[in-house]
């Protein structure tokens, strides 16, 4: 019998078991809802996802917004560093978990990754829908926090360091989310996008759209970071499998230019160094 101290406290999950089989659950409850007895039949996947993160069922318009975000973030495409990393694992025959761990690592950062969503959500938390507050925030962008393991940010979170204009998919996602979330940050962002882009000097990017929508859904920045990591995994998984099937010969290996190459140590006879 375990020590009475070896317990897990949770506001989220409860299990029941038969007296003779204490390690097999006969019923599981998520925030009070019977998962296998009721949710399987009545809840959608995004309802359940929201329930896990917020411990309450979503209003219909919030569930629809989360569904849109799930599709928008679901596959960043093979050019994205996270998917590229997953494919690099897939093409070499690494375990499936290694492909997803690779996607998580390369998709975790402050340049296009989940950390950028967290930082952008912190900007929303501070500034809300107040253009003057945004102006102040842009003048003093987020600095490295105590978590110095994260590198300094290279661009204002939520905006693209390279895009010449807001991309059509980013705009389409924002419009779809603003339709479902008419009274919040997503709608305000749609209405004030150009003004904010002018202040930042960069075009809006997908992490900025996701951040606004997640704030509207009542998600905390920490949960938003986690959810972003999670929602981006399906594409990484699918592309890792695809490239695994294609084989490494059809996967780019790129070329290197080593500027301090000492050259062959023992050149073959008649070969110039």
């Amino acid at each position: 019998m375990a020590s009475s101290k070896d317990v897990i406290h949770s506001k989220l999950w409860q299990e029941e078991s038969e007296p003779g089989d204490p390690f097999t659950a006969t019923a599981c409850y998520c925030s009070g809802y019977d998962v296998y007895g009721e949710l399987l039949h009545k809840a959608s996947y995004v309802d359940y996802l929201y329930l896990l993160f917020r411990r309450e069922r979503p209003l219909p318009h919030v569930a629809r917004a989360l569904e849109i975000l799930t599709i928008a973030l679901g596959n960043p495409g093979p050019r994205d560093p996270s998917v590229h990393a997953a494919m690099s694992a897939g093409v070499g025959g690494s375990p499936a978990a290694a492909a997803l761990m690779a996607a998580l690592a390369a998709g975790a950062g402050s340049s296009g990754g989940a950390r950028e969503v967290l930082l952008a959500m912190e900007v929303w938390t501070r500034c809300g829908c107040d253009l003057n507050a945004w102006q102040t925030a842009i003048a003093s962008p987020p600095v490295a926090t105590r978590q110095l393991v994260w590198p300094d940010i290279d661009h204002f979170p939520g905006f693209s360091p390279y895009a010449r204009d807001v991309s059509i998919p980013v705009r389409q996602t924002l419009e779809a989310l603003a339709d479902c979330l008419p009274d919040g940050c997503a709608r305000w962002l749609l209405d004030h996008r150009q003004a904010i882009e002018n202040l930042v000097g960069l075009s809006l990017a997908m992490p900025g759209v996701a951040a606004a929508a997640l704030i509207d859904m009542g998600i905390t920045p920490e949960a938003g970071e986690m959810l972003t990591l999670l929602l981006r995994l399906p594409g990484a998984a699918a592309h890792a499998l695809e490239q695994g099937e294609m084989g490494f010969r059809r996967f780019p290996f790129f070329s290197l230019d080593i500027s301090n190459d000492p050259g062959p140590a023992m050149p073959k006879e008649g070969t110039a160094r």
């Binding site: 375990a2 070896d6 317990v7 406290h9 299990e15 204490p22 019977d34």
Partner: peptide, 18 residues
């Protein structure tokens, strides 16, 4: 580190219907 079902101490909302 096996954990029995009863080692989850639930502190959330009461049982409810969806």
């Amino acid at each position: 580190f096996p954990l029995r079902c009863s080692s989850l101490i639930y502190e959330g909302p009461a049982r409810r219907a969806w």
